[in-house]
Write a protein that binds this DNA or RNA. Structure first.
Lengths: 231, 231
DNA sequence: CGTTCGCTTGAACTAATTCAAGATAAGTGG
DNA sequence: CCACTTATCTTGAATTAGTTCAAGCGAACG
C-alpha cells in the first residue's frame, strides 16, 4: 500500500496520532475499494464484512423503513470511518452506505481488523470513544426530532452542513455538495414540500439563496436565531 | 464486597461469562450507592465520575431540552449497566439518571474502571459491543420517530415495556412499574393528552386495561397489528 | 428539441397539539 | 374515618403545523 494512503489515515480521528509503525501496518492490511456514484458500499442487513475509511468522494448513510420510506442518518465525506461496530463483531450492517459520487474507501476485512486491534489494543478504546461520540450526537438529534418543529430542525441541519462542508462563495457560504430538497427532508424527518416552502420563505427573507441541489447561507445570524428559537 | 454482589454481576451483559477471578476483582473495586426515589444518580452535564450497575430499584434516563421539556431515553431496571462511555473518557454525562424508586447501584470510579479495563482488555471490546448495540437500538427509535405516527410508536413502546417488565396478571400482562401517561408521552415524543386519548380508545376496543400509572396488555395480537401498521 | 428531474405553489385535509374544565383517585392530617 | 389537598387522568373544542395531492414551471441533459 502506498505511503499516500498511510498518511491519509492520520486525517481520520480513529488513527490520528498513532505511531508511524502502526499506520503502516494498518495501511498494509487494507485494500482500497472504488464505488461509482449511486452504488452501495453495503446495504442494510448485509453481513458486515469490512471496516471502511472513506478517502475520496461522498456517501450517504441511510435507513429504509419497511414501508419504503428513506431516512438519512448522516452524510459522509473524506476522511471518515464507518462500519467498525458491525465489522468487529461480524453482525449485520444496520443501514445502507451509498456513494453519492464516485468514491474510494480503504477497507479492512474482519481478520485484518482483528489483527490490528490485537496488535494495538488502544484501538479498541478509540473505537469505543468514536462510537460513543456518535451515540451522544444521535441522542441529541433524537431529542431535537422529538421536541422541535420542522423549521428549527431544518435550520440546524443547514447550519451543520455549512459547518461541515461549507465553501465560501460570492454572497455567503455554500454547502459543498449536491443537496436536493428531498435529501434535506430525509435528514430532518419531514417532506420535500415542507422543505421547499421553508427554503422559499428563508430566501424571501434574505437568509439563504438556493438553487437546484444547492444552498448558500447568507445570514448565519438569523438562521442561528431560528435554530435556537429566538425572536 | 460481599459474594452476593459479585454473583449479581453475572446477570448483566457486560460481565456475563467472565472468569470468577475477574468478577471478584471487579466487585472488590466497586462501592455501592443507595439513591432515594426521585433523586439523581447524576445529571446532564455532571462530570462523569462513575460507571454504574443498577442492582435494585428502577431508574429513568432522560434529557431535558433548553426549554425545559423532558424526554425519556430509557427506563432501567436491574441488572443494567450505565455510564461507561462517559466514565471511560472522563467527559460529562449527556443525560440524567434519576431513580424512580429507592434504588441501589454498584459504582466504579474512573481509577477503578481503568484498572479493570487494563487487567482485562476484553472488557474494552465488551463495552464497545454494548454501546454499539444501544446505538443500533437508538437508530431504530430515531427512524420510528421520524416516520411513524403516534399511535404506532405508542404501541411499540407498550409492547417493549411489556416484554421488558411484564408481569402476568388476571386478565393479561401488566407493565411492572408505575408508568404515568406523561411518561409514555415523553417516551414516544408526544403529549400527555394524545397518550390518554389513545389508551382510552384501546381500552374501549379491549386491547388494554389501564388505571392510574398502570397498563395491562390484554390483546397482544391486536396491539402488535397496530405496531406494524396492519389492518 | 424534447424529456426528465428537481423544484414550487396552491388547496384540501388530517394528525396532533394546545387550552380549559372537570372527573377520579391517592395520599395527608385532623 | 372524613375532609382536604394534590396528582393523575379524561374529554371536548379550537387551533395549527405539517402532509398529501395535483398541477405546472424551469433548468439540465441526452
Amino acid at each position: 500500500m502506498s505511503s499516500v494512503d498511510h498518511q491519509l489515515l492520520r486525517q481520520c480521528a480513529y488513527f490520528a496520532g498513532m505511531p508511524e509503525a502502526i499506520l503502516q501496518t494498518a495501511a498494509a492490511s487494507a485494500h482500497s475499494r472504488r464505488i461509482l456514484g449511486g452504488e452501495f458500499f453495503f446495504q442494510q442487513g448485509d453481513h458486515a464484512s469490512h471496516f471502511y475509511v472513506l478517502i475520496e468522494g461522498n456517501a450517504r448513510l441511510s435507513q429504509i423503513t419497511p414501508e419504503g420510506r428513506q431516512i438519512i442518518m448522516g452524510l459522509l465525506r473524506p476522511v471518515h470511518e464507518i462500519g467498525i461496530i458491525a465489522a468487529i463483531d461480524g453482525s449485520r450492517y444496520p443501514l445502507d452506505l451509498q456513494a453519492t459520487q464516485d468514491s474510494v474507501a480503504l477497507a479492512w476485512d474482519q481478520a485484518a481488523l482483528r489483527a490490528l486491534l490485537e496488535a494495538e489494543p488502544i484501538l479498541a478504546l478509540r473505537a469505543l470513544r468514536m462510537v460513543s461520540a456518535r451515540f451522544v450526537e444521535l441522542q441529541e438529534r433524537y431529542r431535537e426530532l422529538a421536541t422541535e418543529r420542522v423549521e428549527r430542525r431544518l435550520a440546524r441541519a443547514v447550519l451543520r452542513l455549512v459547518a461541515q462542508v461549507g465553501q465560501p462563495s460570492s454572497d455567503g457560504i455554500t454547502i459543498g455538495l449536491p443537496l436536493a430538497r428531498q435529501d434535506l427532508a430525509e435528514l430532518t424527518g419531514t417532506t420535500l414540500f415542507t422543505v421547499s416552502r421553508t427554503l422559499s420563505a428563508w430566501e424571501e427573507a434574505g437568509i439563504i439563496r438556493s438553487a437546484r441541489e444547492r444552498v448558500t447561507l447568507c445570514d448565519a445570524v438569523r438562521l442561528q436565531a431560528i435554530a435556537e428559537d429566538l425572536p
